[in-house]
């Protein structure tokens, strides 16, 4: 009797697992179709960056890359095509992953990496956010080591065809239902429109100074894995002898890394880039044209469209004048 119950349970359990497996394939296919048919928004921008971008100039980095580098301006100034592969909320491991996928397909003439010293500091979220690469792992196996940073079992979770689209349902639904409400990027570039007020700048400056008083006693400890990803990014570009520009783009405060207790990480960026002959390092964090200029910023971290276009113009002209790229 008891044996029969065990067999009944196992039989039903296996049958239910088969049903789940079949449903997983069907629902997963639905998600895949919806995801890869996105025409606007950051999903479609990432898909293009991973699968298709073949521009002469490729920009990598975080939200400060997406918002600061006008592909139109850079293309016009340099006479080369340009694509911006940056992504909001991402850091150096994501840039390294995107660069690896891109270089497997195409060798650009110039690589621009927008870096922030905090990307080399301890912050587990920079690995957790790599889950956004899961939809691409089927086609790009080289991404699997990156998503394994999230957890050792992450690659096995990909057995499910639904799991890669975890947490994307709201964006997929919004893009499908209200496509006009989603801002369209220009070759990956997605500027911000707002303007920071002088009052907010004053308040932010005071807050950062107060914060610095609290955190200055903390010892700065850079993260070895973050540094390794930064070096990997530069090594990959060096392997194909691609000119690379590592940039700290403009910041609203002068010496922001001092206030953020990240001077060690900042110095590391400088020291590491010096070791690569194909790399030029440019630091705009103390540029008086941007420091303390709230009208050029949308918030404390990002330039607005006006600021981004001014920065992109100056930056591209510098590259041209100094023959960084021919």
């Amino acid at each position: 009797m008891r044996q029969r119950l065990v067999i009944k349970f196992l039989f039903r359990f296996i049958a239910f697992c088969i049903v789940l497996f079949v449903l997983d394939r069907i629902i997963g296919y639905g998600f895949k179709t919806a995801y890869f048919n996105q025409k606007v928004g950051q999903f479609s921008q990432t898909t293009y960056a991973v699968d298709s971008a073949r521009a002469d100039v490729m920009v990598f980095g975080s939200s400060r890359a997406v918002r600061h580098y006008s592909t139109t301006v850079i293309s016009k100034e340099l006479g080369l095509s340009c694509y911006n592969s940056g992504r909001d909320g991402q850091m150096i491991p994501y840039s390294a992953a995107l660069e690896e996928v891109s270089l497997n397909r195409h060798k650009p003439k110039l690589i621009i990496l927008d870096i922030n010293p905090w990307e080399l500091a301890n912050n587990p979220s920079k690995y957790e956010k790599l889950t956004i690469l899961q939809p691409y792992c089927d086609e790009h196996k080289e991404l699997i080591p990156y998503i394994s940073e999230v957890s050792a079992f992450e690659r096995y979770k990909l057995i499910s065809k639904v799991y890669p689209y975890n947490s994307s349902i709201f964006i997929l639904a919004t893009n499908a239902l209200f496509p006009k409400s989603v801002k369209k990027d220009t070759a990956g570039y997605l500027p911000l429109e707002g303007v920071m007020t002088p009052a907010y700048l004053t308040e932010y400056t005071a807050r950062m100074k107060a914060r610095y008083e609290r955190i200055k006693v903390n010892k700065e400890v850079p993260e070895e894995k973050g540094i390794a990803y930064f070096k990997k990014f530069l090594d990959n570009a060096a392997k194909f002898n691609i000119k690379t520009v590592v940039v700290i783009s403009p910041t609203i405060l002068k010496e922001p890394f001092y206030l953020d207790n990240q001077t060690v990480e900042k110095q590391l960026v400088v020291d590491i880039t010096k070791k690569y002959p194909n790399v030029t390092f440019l630091d705009y964090s103390s540029d008086a044209r941007f420091n303390g200029q709230p009208q050029k910023f949308s918030d404390e971290f990002h330039l607005n469209r006006y600021g981004a276009e001014e920065f992109s113009t100056g930056f591209a002209r510098y590259l041209k004048a100094n023959r960084v790229v021919e």
């Binding site: 239910f16 999230v150 639904v162």
Partner: peptide, 14 residues
């Protein structure tokens, strides 16, 4: 099955 798929779609796994 719906609960399982909601878990996969909406869950925070890290």
């Amino acid at each position: 099955a719906l609960t399982v798929f909601l878990l996969l779609i909406l869950g925070v796994f890290n």
